[in-house]
Nucleic acid binder design. Sequence first.
DNA 1: CTCGGTGCTGAACATGCGTTTAGTGTGCTG
DNA 2: CAGCACACTAAACGCATGTTCAGCACCGAG
Lengths: 200, 200
Amino acid sequence: MARFAAEGFGAPVRAVAADAGVSPALVIHHFGSKERLRHECDQHVLALIRAAKNENIGRAAEGKSFFEAFATVERHAPLVGYLLRSLQAGGTVARSFVDQMLTDSEQYTAAAVEAGVARPSRDERARARYLTLSALGALLLSVTLDPPADPADLTAYVRRFFTESYLPMIELYTEGFLADRRMLDDYLLYVSDPPRGEES
Amino acid sequence: MARFAAEGFGAPVRAVAADAGVSPALVIHHFGSKERLRHECDQHVLALIRAAKNENIGRAAEGKSFFEAFATVERHAPLVGYLLRSLQAGGTVARSFVDQMLTDSEQYTAAAVEAGVARPSRDERARARYLTLSALGALLLSVTLDPPADPADLTAYVRRFFTESYLPMIELYTEGFLADRRMLDDYLLYVSDPPRGEES
DNA sequence: CTCGGTGCTGAACATGCGTTTAGTGTGCTG
DNA sequence: CAGCACACTAAACGCATGTTCAGCACCGAG
């Protein structure tokens, strides 16, 4: 039933009731109010996310290519749609989802650094936050700017977005973007010796 | 008058009318409809953006530190607010703004590459798009997840966001994230010789 | 069969929205 | 002063929304 709600958050109760094949009065009677319905869906979605994560842990935790990631997305298509809507609108699901993703990301990068796969950062937490917000934000902005005509095509859309973004992303991740260290060193010098005492 | 509209797009005509100190009927009478008001504001904002860009070209086009960028943001605070709302909601302003930003970005990176400041990419356009969407998207997602209590604090919020993101960003841009070339080379090998013929 | 509970519905209600309309003052023109 | 256009408003309308209410059909228990 939660998947109906992914047709939009501002969307009328009558529509989700019609999708469920019941009267609008029933869904209100059952959930108490629209807000409570939203809350219930949020809880359900968060539970589904936890389940999906566990399921993925059960699978090959190591050799996960991004083909498997695509498969995961397609398997949980409505969930992804709901999540994107949430990220667009804000709210508790979005918050806790991103928070969880941040800690996960931090954990993963820590492991990657320890394994010698990733370079260490001067501020691991800030890097994890930046990388996560960038990746999610790019996807979010992309779907916001030109949303798929048919919401059912969302998985195809996500797939296309990632195949288009993968090259520049992995290029940036391995080779960087700037040719010299000047900007970084300038900044490091700046933070170690702030020129003006206006801010701490 | 356009700045009133930045209090939200779904927001009632009555509110913006009250902010303008006039009756709701007048604004409708003057603009024809709410949609047309929105369109008018969009045009106005796009014009303001062009003006701001020209203004910035007039200033030190080269030695632009990001202090000046902050100053620019603060000088055009309502504009930035409107833009963020637009990016959140989608629509024509968001589209044309991002499109313009993409071509600008492509142009800048091309110049930077030619000047030897930036590394060349295997797909300059894709990289410009990725970098732009990531940067904008990260900011957008950040303000969506925990919006400033007072919309007037938005410039402070933007400032904080960038100061927090600058280190990981510049670090990533100069040093990269991955320690070895394996993922990139694997991908390059993959695209040069796709294993399955399902997609072109 | 009757009774009561339960899942459910159609019609109504209140509210807030964008918009329309009739009308009012105000100032400019002759 | 008369006429008129114009900026503006108060009140209403039509519509969609979330929500409520009285009642309907079913169904197991007595």
